[in-house]
Simulated assay, not measured.
Amino acid sequence: MTALERDAGVQGRLGAWVSERVSVAVSEFTAAAALVVLFVALSLASPNFLTADNLFNIGSQTAVIAIIAVAQTMVIITKGIDLSVGSTAALAGVMAAIVVRDLGVSVWTAALVAIAVGAACGLVNGLLVSVVRLPPFIATLGTMSAGRGLVFIVTGAVGVYSLPESFQLLGNGQIGGVPFAIVVTALVALAVGYLLSQSRFGQHVYAMGSNLEAARRAGIAVRRKLTAVYVLAGALVGLGGVIAASRVNSGQPNYGIGLELDAIAAAVIGGASLFGGQGRIAGTLIGAFLIALVRNGSVLLGISIHYQQVIVGLIIWAAVAFDQFRRRRLEARG
């Protein structure tokens, strides 16, 4: 290969890298613009939107969606999908509520239990994907069904109540007027964002999503790293589950049904590609806030929950279609 050919190859790769970064930035800017427009529209449409109570509610609601969407983003970057986030969150929240009610442990111990439950579910997903080599869709679909069944078995399909007020700290507490859940979400986003963008592990995650076989040939321990991604994602889902349970001061076996749609939508709206190898936590947070505003605004305007599902479905269609459009343009540029 001549020096000219090498230079051309380097310039081509650099051009592709720049195009990809520009594409992600455009997605994030578009999502941010939509978020601003929706915020202004709801402010004008409902006198209750800008009240302190409603904004606090949006913050707490966004926290759960955002944390679980961050977990989903990590999986999507590896070219996977996690359909079990809803049942995992429900199982984690229920188990946290049970140990608080029956063992009298603190909310912090309950949170650790929920995180451990989520990590265990993530470990199952990770082993099924990386060792058994099931497609992520099938592996996590099975975990979704098994997890939901386990929730109903543990609770007898009845909510877990009679919890102390201290359990509400994670979901309803404040620090200097800021919802505690938002503080936790910010810390999670910063930590995972740093992990993905600044660490060797993060580089491997993106590499596996871009080309799994090439990553394996480059010496990346694909099985171990993939499993680690699912375990970490499961732990975050468990954290989201205990925050959700804390918001209502109970463990609800029906919680999280359809939550995987919101998590996927938030990730894709924020620029994560279902084709793998692309996505940023900042974009996911924007997507999570957008989904939370859609949910909250629909309630304030009296829009049926069934129409809310239609709206979220349309958003997912639009986001995925835009993702495919971006991907085709990048491929066309070489």
Rank of each mutant, 00 (worst) to 15 (best):
Arg6Phe: 07
Gln198Arg: 14
Thr73Arg: 11
Leu195Ser: 04
Val294Ser: 03
Ile316Gly: 13
Ala218Tyr: 02
Ile153Val: 13
Arg101Gln: 11
Thr88Val: 14
Leu55Tyr: 10
Leu35Phe: 15
Gly171Tyr: 11
Phe152Glu: 02
Pro135Met: 14
Leu259Ala: 06
Gly193Ser: 11
Thr78Cys: 15
Pro136Leu: 01
Ser106Met: 04
Ser130His: 04
Ser87Arg: 01
Val160Ala: 02
Val129Gly: 14
Gly177Ile: 00
Leu301Trp: 10
Ile65Trp: 04
Phe180Lys: 00
Phe29Asp: 01
Glu5Asn: 12
Val231Leu: 06
Arg6Leu: 15
Gly202Trp: 01
Val129Arg: 03
Gln309Met: 10
Glu260Asn: 11
Arg148Phe: 06
Gly234Ser: 07
Ile311Cys: 09
Ala52Trp: 11
Glu5Met: 09
Phe201Ser: 02
Ala120His: 03
Tyr194Gln: 03
Ala92Thr: 06
Gln309Arg: 11
Ile153His: 03
Ser199Pro: 15
Val18Glu: 03
Arg328His: 13
Leu4Gly: 12
Cys121Glu: 00
Gly176Trp: 07
Gly171Met: 05
Val113Phe: 14
Leu83Val: 01
Ile65Ala: 08
Ile115Val: 15
Asp7Ser: 12
Ala97Leu: 13
Phe275Leu: 15
Gly86Trp: 10
Val132Ala: 15
Gly12Phe: 10
Ala63His: 04
Ser145Phe: 13
Val40Asn: 01
Val132Gly: 09
Ile115Arg: 10
Gly156Leu: 10
Ala96Arg: 10
Glu213Lys: 13
Ser166Asp: 14
Leu123Asp: 00
His306Asn: 08
Tyr194Leu: 11
Ile257Thr: 04
Ala45Asp: 03
Gly156Glu: 08
Arg148Gln: 09
Gly126Cys: 05
Ala228Lys: 02
Pro47Ala: 02
Tyr230Arg: 01
Phe152Asp: 09
Phe29Ser: 14
Ala267His: 10
Leu330Glu: 08
Ser145Tyr: 06
Phe325Glu: 00
Ser46Phe: 02
Gly240Asn: 08
